[in-house]
Amino acid sequence: MRRDSFSEYHPGITFTFFIAAIVFGMCFIHPAFWISSVVLSTAYVVSIRGRRAAKILLILLILFLAVSLLNPMFTADGEHVLFLLPWGRPYTMEALCYGLAAGGMFVTVLLWFAAYNEVMSSDKFLFLFGRLMPSLSLVLTMILRLVPSFQRKMAQIVGARKCIGMVGDVDRKSRINAGMAVTAALTSWALEGGIITADSMQSRGFGVGKRSAFAVYRLENRDVILLGVMILLILVVLLCAFHGGMKTAYIPKIELAGTDVPYMITGMIAYVLFMAIPTALNIVETVRWHYLKSKI
């Protein structure tokens, strides 16, 4: 992974950003908004993943086309008929525009999630929810710890059984039975290990009182500033949305809030600025390091 400076901010900031970006991405079907969202989410994914982004982008392009082109088949409404489907339903321009918006929104959400998966590691999530839901987040931590260990143990069990000739044969039934035996063996092992884990927890004072939550993250000045900027932009976007800045209708007739509406312009600017934050931070950081290096 390339160095992503946005992810070095406080997890609260990262999380707020993604929630807002994803929710906005799902809501705004105005073409100017969804297109800028797709562009900026792509920019961020590329800035984090570099060349590795190519594969994701290709898959998402196919998904985008599929969702946009298939969706209009399910509605016959709209003024401009482009052509008739073989079974006689009209395929309309308005529906296609709507479909494109649907595809764009779907893809932008997936792009934000792709970035989320790179940036929001499990510790960050657990840090945010650890205080709110201490027991559940502890269980989640334990699951995340157990999964790799179970995977390794499962491979060991499969290997051990192979070496005594207990493999599922070619037919499906015996393969399923072999899988079941492995699952049963793993369950025994895992539950017995769990007894030790529980002992180890109690032995280290679990349950003697209210737990505190240790975190390796600290709220710094720059975090507070960025959070302020983010909240301000979010509020502006919401305000504009409330006043009809993103008003859009596709079916039966395309009606969009145009550039003549001040709320649309303001909302658009705030939205773009908001979504550009992580990419901009990455660019600024790169430039700063080049500058520092050149000074040496």
């Binding site: 334990m142 995977q151 399923i176 529980a198």
Partner: peptide
């Protein structure tokens, strides 16, 4: 602690169980 561990173990088994059936 015991309840939490049991829940975590069962959830983790449900998560990894697919791997036992890669052949199917």
């Amino acid at each position: 602690a015991r309840e939490l561990v049991t829940i975590a173990v069962m959830a983790a088994i449900a998560t990894v169980a697919r791997a036992a059936f890669v052949m199917v």
